[in-house]
Amino acid sequence: MTTTHEHTPHHLGERSAMLKVTGLQKIYNGGATAVEAVRDLTFELAEGELVCLVGPSGCGKTTLLKCIAGLMAPTDGTVELAGQPVLSPPPGMAVVFQEYGRSLFAWMSVSDNVELPLKEKKLPKARRAELVAESLAAVGLTEFADAYPWQLSGGMQQRVAIARAVAYEPQVLLMDEPFAAVDAQTRADLEDLVRELWKRLGVTVLFVTHDIDEAVYLGERVLVLSNSPTVVQDDITVDLPAERDQLTTRQDERFTQLRAHVYAQIQQAKKGTTAPAA
């Protein structure tokens, strides 16, 4: 299952580690019972890589993501972003949450939502306007710049969240099941949007999902997590061409093989791991 990244646009010799998770463990202490959500996670994302993280439901994906984002302190282990340890939300990281309706500021227009983090970054006004316009154009929402988020459909709201993340110019983009709450057609469009933005911007993306098809379709690599307490069960390189298409890629024989492989791994993950937590 090894492959050369012949089509990936950011393949410039050896890629350095952008995001590094080492021995991550998270135990929730609740009085007498301690629940070990994440046991021992170690993986790396090279600069410019798009990696999908799948696992059985309840395997601690959200916990992991919060630890990586610096929103939650791990019990043990470290997270490093470009060589710097992550102890609080780092400036080089943007997050797109699943709950688009709850992650946008309802009292601000679409463009204000995108601009707010840039203001906090103390970017000059002209640069901010430029970034807002660019990112809204990239997600196809230029004409909705002055609308409120709640005036838009779910898929469009998630586009706003993506535009905000993109405008922030992060080194690493974390996406926490971003399309779990949108309909199938919108979802396909948004998947292609993520691929397109990733290729254009060269950002490192960690995409958490519970959808196996989505993981294989989007990723250069798929990390399969085990059941809770979580470890990395498998690390699969997706050797599909870089130019992906909802129709042809999904019909590709290799796609089917990879999907079957990931599926089998997840089934194994569900059964295989002992020591159920809570």
Binding site: K66, P91, M93, R102, S103, E120
Partner: peptide, 10 residues
């Protein structure tokens, strides 16, 4: 979620 979002974006 909004609170987390705000923290992530500094």
């Amino acid at each position: 979620v909004l609170s987390d979002t705000a923290r992530c974006y500094g």
